[in-house]
Design a protein around this nucleic acid. Sequence first.
DNA 1: ATTTCATATTAGATTTAATCTAAATATTTC
DNA 2: GAAATATTTAGATTAAATCTAATATGAAAT
Lengths: 141, 141
Amino acid sequence: MNAGAIRQSLEGCGLRCTPQRFAVMAFLMEHPRHPTAAEIFEAVNRVDPRSSRATTYNNLRDLVQAGLVREVAVEGRAARFDMKGMRHHHFICDGCGKVEDMEWYEVPRPASRSLGKRFLRECELIFRGLCANCAPRRRSG
Amino acid sequence: MNAGAIRQSLEGCGLRCTPQRFAVMAFLMEHPRHPTAAEIFEAVNRVDPRSSRATTYNNLRDLVQAGLVREVAVEGRAARFDMKGMRHHHFICDGCGKVEDMEWYEVPRPASRSLGKRFLRECELIFRGLCANCAPRRRSG
DNA sequence: ATTTCATATTAGATTTAATCTAAATATTTC
DNA sequence: GAAATATTTAGATTAAATCTAATATGAAAT
């Protein structure tokens, strides 16, 4: 399994591999569904070791800061998280709000004229529409 | 001024042009800075007519539903809003979190293979990096 | 092994954002 | 102008995230 890989990436960032941190990473790896912090907290807590709400939030913050996890840009109240492993874009369903990963491809950069003095780190695409589940029901509804 | 235009777009969507609704639209038009609901509430309330928190939220919801306003996809707790008038992309600053509009350009669609059964309505770009304000300070810091 | 020190975790309180509720106002329609 | 509909309101409630201060853990040094 990738237990070793998780431990390595944590320590590579100077973060101790605590059971709670490991559990967050493992859950995100196994569930690339952009869970909310609350979902992660619940899931991690369902199995041992117990982890408090504050720890879950702390760890998510640390992991984002370390660049291992990212907080996904979505509208809506609860933050959603994502393993940063493989580059990908996002599809957000107008119908059910589900966030799905989409295959990565390079996006043309904006004209440097329009960029001005900004420093551009990355371009991320958000696709909107209806997911495979909602599409048939809505379009011809 | 564009008071008439606001009234027209509201009524075109079947929404009454109430003073509170008008004020939200006018504020968003004059401040293309992706304000949060709380900022809009405060600003609208600073001038007459008074508008309660609930009304501000209700109106924002209605305006989004009507397609006149959009909720911007950003990470972070508070929802941010945007006049839907002219198409544009967004730049989010890693440093200060500010959301800026970027000139619109067409983005290549994903391969239909990777789209699958989904119905694609639009492609939105999010640029990340440092804004003109943060760039000089951080890059060579 | 014991001390030391920084790092992590915890339960519960607090803050913040958003929504709900039920009553009051306003607007349209007939 | 009465009835029906839509809108606004203050304040309560819910939900998400953060803070606090006490405790526990692990690593480094001796």
